[in-house]
Computed example of a mutant assay.
Amino acid sequence: MVTGLAGVGKGALALHAAHRAVDHGWFGGGTLFVHLRGYDPAGPVSGEQARESLLRALGIRKNDVPPTAEEQEQSSALRA
């Protein structure tokens, strides 16, 4: 977990560490990233938006995304 005030570079640090981990082969199966927009004026990404984004990144077409949050969570758990 990385914590701190807005604008101090938490996101940059996390991305740098993630890229280094990938470069060292720690995640051979691939990686996923969701920018949660924590301090963005447009507001943060909701859990539902993040989950839908991850399901699409895993190759699940929009029409195949389960209709309820519970079914979406089960679907993403099966692919993990």
Rank of each mutant, 00 (worst) to 15 (best):
A21W: 05
V34E: 08
G59Y: 08
A14N: 02
P67H: 14
L54D: 01
D64T: 15
L13H: 11
L36Q: 15
D40P: 02
A80R: 11
A21V: 04
G43T: 02
D40S: 08
G11Y: 07
G28L: 14
S76E: 15
G59R: 04
A6L: 10
G29K: 08
L36A: 15
H19D: 06
P41K: 01
H35E: 07
L5T: 14
V45H: 13
G59S: 13
G28C: 01
E71H: 04
L78T: 04
G4W: 03
L58Q: 11
E48Q: 07
G11E: 13
S76V: 11
L15G: 06
G11Q: 05
R51P: 05
Y39R: 12
S76W: 10
E73T: 06
G25E: 00
N63R: 06
E70H: 12
H35L: 03
L5A: 06
V34K: 01
E71L: 15
H16R: 14
L58K: 08
G25C: 02
R56K: 11
R37D: 11
E52P: 01
V2M: 07
V2T: 09
V65P: 03
P66C: 10
W26G: 01
T3C: 03
V45Y: 06
A50G: 00
L54W: 00
V22M: 13
V22W: 12
E73H: 03
G9M: 06
G28H: 02
L5R: 08
A57Y: 15
E73G: 09
L32H: 12
G29A: 14
E71I: 02
M1N: 05
T68I: 08
A12G: 09
S53E: 11
H19A: 13
V45I: 11
L5I: 10
P66D: 10
P41T: 02
V34A: 13
L54H: 00
G30C: 02
G38T: 00
Q72G: 00
R61Q: 14
L13Q: 07
R51L: 09
G7W: 12
